[in-house]
Design a binder for these strands. Structure first.
Length: 574
DNA sequence: GCCGTTTTCGGCCCGACTGTTTTCAGTCG
């Protein structure tokens, strides 16, 4: 919580300084600190206590002092001072597309605009259009920006944005003269949520392609339309809109453009700095030495010229990826490593399909095994199985497995971790299962110590193999519980219990930063779909992307093991 | 404000699009 509060404080300081027209490098520095704090898994107070704050890249004497000040007295004097100089509602105006620091400062100083409502009034009554530098077009654009901000709302989950992006990519591919289309941006990096969709294509006549793009049937409004770039909004569902950007590049620049528009911004800034130190210039058109292009057709050749391995796109967040070597990259988990899925539900509890349907669908994915995990008795809403029904389920699945060809069907359960940390089934019943997933589905509001202790108790049960969706968050719906992730990781390392990377796009739990922490600490993972219907088995790719973002290697993921290895791993645990 | 394989001072990524400008500033990614 402290990390987040501090991150917000530093970001706000950045905003306030920007409106004031302060040194932009100082502003960037505060923003970088804000981002670092948001990314931090460890409690920043622990870093302060152990005197390790200055070891964090981007945090120097100045920002460290402010962090310590905040921890000691709960305030940052400079922030208070800045806040005193301008209205509370002003920084929020920076979020409006088309409104930058200069324009926000102008409307405040010239028109006394202090918040969004004031700005809307000034648009209505024509005062804004009269302001120097704000012509009719600017006002229209700002009005549209406000409308977009109000309808787009929160960032869109990966699993919702990707199908839309794939459909759009297909439409762009059908435009005359387009040779190749790619999805770039945070969507390509596999971020759990995205703000917009970035598309890239090869074509010689950029202007013509952009004209066709902004005229596509599903386009709601056109934000920009030039010779190489078009920017539009498209509806997502009934009430929301998403921004979609298309860039058109020639074939020899495709790799450079793909690299550039895949980001992240932070990764690219570092890469360009590295290029510049080696006497190159890097931009979206290629890598240049003395104005001569030396790379750019593929991403790989750019990284190679700069003496770097081909850094996988999921790692490009400036979280240490420039230091990792090619041998490590080879070992990162891929979809091809996945041999089975260990968490799924049938009609016996709250699933929509039968055992047979799941097994057939999984066979189609060329898996070696699946694990059937219906809910336990306390999950009444999910039609959890009583002890008697669970005993019956074990017999049913075992009998089915005997006759089903081409895939091993294991029998397990998703056993509730009760509010006191006890499991919902007795040990002797759990012992009959192949793989047991234990998850929290109740009392999610417990205090940090309570819910952490509760989970550790389940981790310590020798019949539990996997902790399902450890933080219980639902993207944009329900925040994570107060659980102390470093603590449960520590316990899981000690017992050998695997932590789940739940691949359902609404969950992605553990998230990428948690995975990175778990991997660094030596924990084992299990990437599962938690499918309640056969199409959901396809969501494995979201979990694998999340695991890659957390630097997970295949040898640390239990469902990359062969069936024999998996069962041996399980025996060793006990 | 941060940082160092030219550096403890002097840098700090780079180009496209737009609008209101008559040559460029602001915004964005």
């Amino acid at each position: 919580m402290l990390n987040k509060e501090l991150a917000n404080a530093f970001n706000l300081m950045g905003d306030l300084l920007e409106i004031q027209g302060a040194n932009r490098f100082r502003i960037n520095s505060f923003r970088r600190t804000g981002r670092t704090l948001k990314d931090l898994i460890e409690d920043v107070a622990v870093l302060v206590e152990e005197d390790r704050l200055l070891e964090v890249p981007g945090i120097g004497k100045g920002t460290a002092g402010k962090i310590e000040e905040f921890i000691e007295v709960g305030r940052i004097a400079e922030l208070d001072e800045l806040l005193g100089k301008m209205p509370d509602g002003l920084p929020a105006l920076l979020d409006i597309p088309g409104m930058g620091p200069k324009k926000v400062a102008a409307v405040w100083k010239e028109l006394d605009i202090e918040e969004l409502g004031d700005l809307k009034e000034a648009i209505e009554d024509g005062r804004l259009a009269e302001l120097a530098g704000f012509g009719e077009q600017s006002v229209k654009k700002i009005g549209e920006g406000i409308r977009f901000m109000e309808t787009s709302g929160e960032r869109v989950p990966y699993g919702e944005a990707l199908p839309l992006a794939e459909a759009l990519a297909e439409e762009v591919g059908a435009i005359d003269g387009v040779k190749r289309v790619a999805i770039a941006g945070s969507l390509r990096r596999g971020r759990e949520t995205v703000g917009d969709i970035d598309l890239l294509c090869i074509a010689s006549d950029g202007a013509a392609v952009v004209r066709s793009f902004v005229a596509l049937g599903r386009v709601a409004s056109v934000l920009a339309s030039g010779d190489t770039k078009g920017s539009v909004t498209v509806p997502l569902g009934s009430a929301r809109e998403m921004q979609v950007d298309l860039r058109v590049v020639p074939e020899e620049s495709f790799g450079a453009a793909l690299q550039y528009f895949s980001g992240s911004k932070e990764h690219n800034v570092r890469l360009r700095e590295m290029a510049s130190k080696q006497g190159y210039k890097l931009n979206e058109w290629g890598l240049f030495k003395n104005d001569k292009q030396v790379a750019g057709r593929t991403e790989e050749e750019i990284y190679a010229k700069l003496g770097l391995p081909a850094i996988p796109v999921e790692l490009r967040e400036d979280r240490g990826e420039f230091e990792c070597d090619a041998a490590f990259i080879e070992t990162l988990i891929t979809m091809a490593d996945i041999r089975g899925d260990l968490h799924m539900h049938t009609v016996a509890s709250d699933g929509k399909c039968t055992l047979e349907q799941l097994a057939e669908a999984a066979k189609g994915l060329a898996y070696e095994y699946i694990n059937i995990t219906d809910h336990s008795k306390s999950s009444a809403i999910a039609n959890g199985l009583s002890i008697e029904r669970m005993e019956q389920q074990i017999e049913t699945v075992r009998a089915f497995d005997k006759t089903f060809k081409g895939l091993k069907v294991l029998v397990g359960c998703e056993c509730d971790i009760l509010s006191n940390g006890d499991l919902d089934y007795p040990d002797d019943l759990l012992a009959e299962c192949d793989i047991v997933v234990a998850s929290i589905h109740s009392a999610m509001g417990q205090a940090k110590e309570v819910i952490t202790r509760r989970t550790i108790k389940a981790i310590e049960n020798p019949h539990v193999h996997i902790i399902g969706h450890p933080t219980s968050r639902l993207l944009n719906k329900r925040p994570a519980t107060a659980i102390d992730v470093p603590e449960i990781v520590k316990a899981a390392v000690e017992t050998g219990t695997a932590l789940e990377v739940n691949s359902a796009w609404k969950r992605l739990d553990l998230n990428d930063r948690h995975v990175r922490h778990a991997i660094d600490a030596g924990a084992m993972l299990s990437i599962n779909t938690d499918s309640h219907d056969t199409p959901q088995l396809q969501q494995m790719r979201y979990g694998v992307a999340t695991a890659r973002r957390g630097w997970a290697t295949a040898d640390r993921v239990i469902n990359t093991m062969s069936l024999k290895q998996l069962l041996a791993w399980k025996e060793r645990m006990q």
